[in-house]
Design a protein around this nucleic acid. Structure first.
Length: 548
RNA sequence: GGUCCCAUCGUCUAGCCAGGUCUAGGACACCGGGUUUUCAACCCGGCGACAGGGGUUCAAAUCCCCUUGGGACUACCA
């Protein structure tokens, strides 16, 4: 590593929630900066008026913070190289564009979208790559004025001059060559006056003193454009590392469209679903819903989620918030994402954040694409829940409960900590929440799982032991999990049966299901009074006529 | 269509750059068994890969070429 300060950045465009792909890019840049003691900065590339929203920006920042990815310069923290929103840097881009124009390294163009489409179609028909035909003489001010008057779009194109082609020296892939004439003149200032991505990154990376650019492989093809620009402007070249792409089960790049797509599939499969009710849930017209089903349009995320909830289908997590809402820990995400396309080489895979920072290295980034494996993610989460500091875990749990508006919010810290302790081994916080929910159910209107009742209380005659269990528990003066255990074990021994014969019926009686935390704790958490009440209810409802 | 990237168990990967120590290691998943008051967790065991074909070499998962397969880009999106 050189002695120079290393500066990396993450430069999202705020078009929606931060998704796993973006988070991984951010993470690698952050890890590299932290590993080398360099700086990590955040820049917002909000130059697409049509797609950016202010709420998306807030969401991206909060998602990064949730992951524990902090930035040394950027929105809300400031820094010497601001502003960090490209939309606030328009004069800067304009002045560089003017310079290029003056030097004959850029020129105005007035093509309409239709004309451009036609040119591209012709190129493809001729089995050629499309390269914009540079005019022999660049338009002058008069022609620009005329084009404007005619209502044509006026954009600025950069003159790509590379008789020997390009060589991108990539930290991961080595030297990647591009032949001359493969990169055409591209637009640097759009007709709305905003810079294109290519122009913005090159200028900002220079001005913000970025030394290393770690980004997705999808940008490898853009790099010659960036280098041409850097040369024309007399800029330094940052080092580039183009990482592998994360692909999804269906093949192809992991995309935000996956959630709406899987909702669409679910609706199609469920022919009996009430379309009108669905549309209403999503705040859509029925026509809009049909358009969506045909693939013509995409509703926004809240609409998609509302419809999924109504249908009772689980959408695959793709945005970072989705994972939060599904009960994953930020530590898990950092560890897992950090191992997608990176591997330190040892045999350990479960690493804490500091350990990951310590072992991270650009030249251990993988070349080939990787598949996002949700099962492995779940396994990682189990491990992180187990090794998480109890206090930190409690904080995560409370944040999760708030996010999903859980009834468990009513529990105090001692109770929540206990739930976490006895549910060790759970895959997600959601699983823990589900398991412990019974404590907050109403004693009278508890919901019974018919299969559980049938199997445990009826078929196995479990309801028969319940009165005796209730009597013994009622005699308890000092209720603790241990005391409950003693009673239940004693009872089982007396009746010459396994503990399961006593524990299962009790479990179904007080939770309505066969799944719960360890039964002794479950009774203790509920309290004897409520336990007895629930047993009585169960006996009343399922006892008559089935006693053997 | 054009350009570029990639290729080890089902999946994530170690090994490849500096060829022999690789009958290819780990993790997740899966299967079998154990533990057990449920679900998990836990313990033990098992299945399982160098895409194919040519070279180079005493020797190739490792180097070269071709084929095949996958992926990215091909926008006045980023």
């Amino acid at each position: 590593m050189s002695d120079k300060l290393i500066v990396t950045r993450f430069a999202p465009s705020p078009t929606g929630y931060l998704h796993v792909g973006g988070a991984r890019t951010a993470l690698f840049n952050w890890l590299f900066a932290r590993h080398t003691g360099g700086k990590f900065l955040l820049r917002i590339e909000d130059t697409d008026l049509k797609r950016n929203t202010p709420t998306a920006l807030r969401q991206v920042l909060s998602d990064l913070r949730w992951l524990g990815i902090d930035w040394d310069e950027g929105p809300e923290v400031g820094g010497p190289n601001g502003p960090y929103l490209q939309s606030e840097r328009l004069e800067i881009y304009r002045s560089y564009a003017d310079r290029l124009l003056r030097e004959g390294k850029a020129y105005y163009c007035f093509d309409t979208a239709e004309e451009l489409d036609a040119m591209r179609a012709r190129a493809e028909a001729a089995k050629q790559g499309f390269v914009y035909p540079r005019p022999a003489v660049f338009p002058d001010e008069k022609e620009v004025a005329r084009a404007r008057a005619e209502g044509r779009p006026v954009a600025i194109r950069f003159v790509v001059d590379a008789p020997r082609g390009f060589v991108v020296d990539d930290l991961i892939r080595g030297k990647v060559k591009f032949g001359p004439g493969e990169v055409g003149d591209f637009i640097i200032i759009k007709s709305d006056g905003f810079p294109t991505y290519h122009f913005g990154v090159v200028i900002d990376d220079e001005l913000m003193k970025v030394t290393h650019v770690i980004r997705g492989q999808e940008h490898l093809m853009n790099t010659p454009c960036h280098q041409a620009l850097q040369d024309a402007l007399g800029f330094r070249r940052p080092a580039y590392a183009h990482m592998s792409v994360t692909v999804s089960e269906g093949g192809g790049k992991l995309s935000k469209r996956e959630r709406p797509a899987s909702l669409r599939k679910a609706i199609e499969k469920n022919a009996t679903a009430d379309r009108a009710a669905l549309a209403a849930a999503g705040g859509l017209t029925t026509e809009a819903l049909e358009d969506f089903l045909r693939g013509d349009c995409m509703p926004d995320m809240p609409a998609v989620e509302a419809m999924a909830k109504l249908l009772g289908v689980e959408l695959p997590e793709i945005n970072i918030v989705d994972f939060f809402r599904s009960g994953y820990l930020p530590e898990t995400m950092v560890n897992f994402l950090g191992f997608l396309g990176f591997n330190p080489g040892g045999e350990r895979e479960i690493l804490r954040r500091e350990e990951l920072v310590a072992v991270f290295d650009i030249d251990r980034l993988t070349k080939s694409n990787s598949l996002f494996d949700r099962r492995k993610l779940a396994a990682f989460n189990t491990e992180h829940i187990k090794m998480c500091d109890p206090e930190v875990l409690l904080r995560h749990f409370k944040a999760y409960l708030d996010e999903v508006h859980s009834p468990l919010r009513a529990a105090d810290d001692a109770m929540l900590s206990r739930m976490l302790r006895i549910c060790l081994g759970a895959r997600t916080l959601a699983e823990i929440e589900r398991k412990c929910r019974f404590v907050f159910a109403d004693d009278e209107t508890i919901e019974f799982d018919p299969a559980a009742v049938d199997k445990v209380l009826r078929k196995d005659g479990g309801v028969g032991v319940l009165p005796l269990v209730a009597r013994r528990l009622g005699e308890l003066k000092n209720v603790t999990a241990e005391a409950v255990e003693e009673i239940l074990r004693g009872l089982a021994e007396e009746k010459q049966v396994g503990l399961g014969k006593v524990a299962q019926p009790l479990r179904v009686a007080i939770t309505g299901t066969t799944i719960s935390p360890p039964i002794f704790d479950a009774v203790d958490m509920l309290g004897i009074e409520r336990t007895l009440k629930r047993i009585a209810t169960a006996v009343r409802r399922f006892g008559s006529g089935t006693s053997e």
